[in-house]
Design a protein around this nucleic acid. Structure first.
Lengths: 105, 105
DNA sequence: CTTTATTATCGTAAATATACGATATAACCG
DNA sequence: CGGTTATATCGTATATTTACGATAATAAAG
């Protein structure tokens, strides 16, 4: 016996590009190494890529790739400082993330 | 010229199994279809698997697989109701998620 | 301009995720 | 028990992610 789809009770204030952005943030932090890298960046402000490479048992190319995923998702910002790149949490984007999570669910 | 790793400025209140659980929640919502399924479950309380199958253009087996990922991650709970399974948001786990996000970052 | 230091990107192999049809399982009805 | 309905699981093909070494790009120093 097939019952119909239950009535919609409410709407969620998310769709389109905002939803895509949110999903990308979820996806980026859904990896143990990227999660650890973000933790490391938050607890060690002023870090450059090399510091992360020294601290994790993975190749430099892999670290750089993970940093790109975190940056593309909006979790971190990179600032060129001489030949190095200094990464830090993107506080505005993170505030947006928390706000959206609070709003939609 | 190698500079040392910057001093640790703080700690983040997450590690071990709690961190693993959080990462699993991020990973589960980092997929567009699972995100939509969660939205659908929230806006249509009392849904069974078949309602979701009817609403999305993917096979029943795939829906069931996605529901398992969401359930294993803790986003949803499934209650057997006759031959069907009724899914809904796990409010306690979601509250825990929001609390942790607020605490650690 | 050449060298050195640092990071990003390319190409690719291995692991994981995603999707599907087919089949198994579970609950209910008669 | 046998049939029906609804869902979960299995096996497997394809797509994506992850990791690495090698190489390119960028900035500063000499």
């Amino acid at each position: 016996m097939l019952s119909g789809i239950p009535e919609q009770c409410c709407t969620l204030d998310i769709s389109g590009s905002e939803q895509q952005s949110l999903i990308a943030m979820f996806r980026a932090l859904g990896n143990p190494i990227r999660f650890e890298i973000l933790k490391f960046l938050i607890t060690h402000p002023g870090c450059i890529t090399g510091n992360i490479v020294d601290h994790f048992p993975i190749a430099q190319a892999t670290v750089s790739q993970h940093l790109k995923v975190l940056r593309d998702a909006g979790w971190i910002e990179g600032e060129t400082r001489g030949p190095a790149t200094c990464y830090c949490l993107d506080k505005e984007k993170f505030a947006w993330f928390k706000r959206k999570i609070g709003e939609i669910f």
